[in-house]
């Protein structure tokens, strides 16, 4: 096996793992967005505002638990496989998005909101036409951070049977096959960089017209 060339690993074995990895990342990221953005919005509403700093503080501490431990804990709760992996990844990706949603909305100048109310917008209109669009750059930045985290943690999720590029990395480490480790690690790094750059550029394109200064 050690004689297999890097080129062969890349063309024959890697594509399957790349696809599996992408699947894990995209599913978890989407679920994370669907949960985190509404939660973040909720935390900025009047009746919940007083809890927002506490909730964020708790989530912040949770983020201090290493990804490895999060993954391991879900192994014990949900067993091995793709589902526990996705649950772990989703949870791990929640915080940056929720945090940035709260920050993005709270950072909007109060005068802007007041002006919107002043021209007769309802609370719902203020949210959809003013708050969310103005907070979008920061929310997307949160998604960007989250995507990078999930790509990395997905590799570790192999330890509970997620598959993906992590399988190549750990296979290489446990069986002393440095080529596998190298290819898996590089591909995983490239994927993270691509996600990072994708959201960065998306942010610039989307928001160049109304960047808040």
């Amino acid at each position: 096996m050690e004689t297999i060339s890097i080129f062969d690993i890349l063309t024959k074995e890697a594509p399957e793992h790349i696809l599996q990895h992408l699947k894990l990342v995209l599913i978890s990221l989407n679920i994370a967005i669907l949960i985190a953005v509404p939660t973040g919005v909720l935390l900025t509403r009047k009746s919940f505002k007083k809890y927002s700093s506490k909730v964020i503080a708790v989530l912040n501490t949770a983020q201090g638990v290493p990804s490895l431990a999060i993954v391991a804990i879900f192994l014990n709760i949900l067993g091995i496989g793709i589902v526990p992996s996705i649950v772990a990844l989703t949870l791990y990706g929640l915080l940056p998005i929720a945090q940035n949603t709260v920050a993005g909305i709270n950072n909007i100048n109060y005068e802007v909101i007041e002006a919107a109310k002043g021209v007769g917008m309802s609370d719902k209109q203020v949210l959809y036409k003013i708050e969310l669009p103005l907070a979008l750059p920061i929310i997307i930045a949160g998604i960007q951070t989250s995507s990078v985290l999930i790509v990395g943690t997905a590799a570790i999720a192999e330890l509970i049977g997620a598959g993906g590029l992590g399988r190549m990395i750990f296979l290489g480490i446990t069986h002393f096959l440095p080529k596998y480790t190298l290819v898996g690690a590089l591909l995983c790094a490239v994927m993270a960089i691509i996600f990072d750059q994708f959201f960065r550029i998306l942010n610039i394109k989307l928001t160049r017209n109304y960047k808040q200064t």
């Binding site: 590799a155 480490i173 440095p178 480790t181 190298l182 690690a185 790094a189």
Partner: peptide, 18 residues
């Protein structure tokens, strides 16, 4: 620096050990 930051840690270790 920001590209390095986006490299997953397991990848970083994986690359360095090789």
């Amino acid at each position: 620096g920001s590209i390095i930051m986006s490299i997953p840690s397991i990848s970083m270790y994986g690359i360095l050990v090789t």
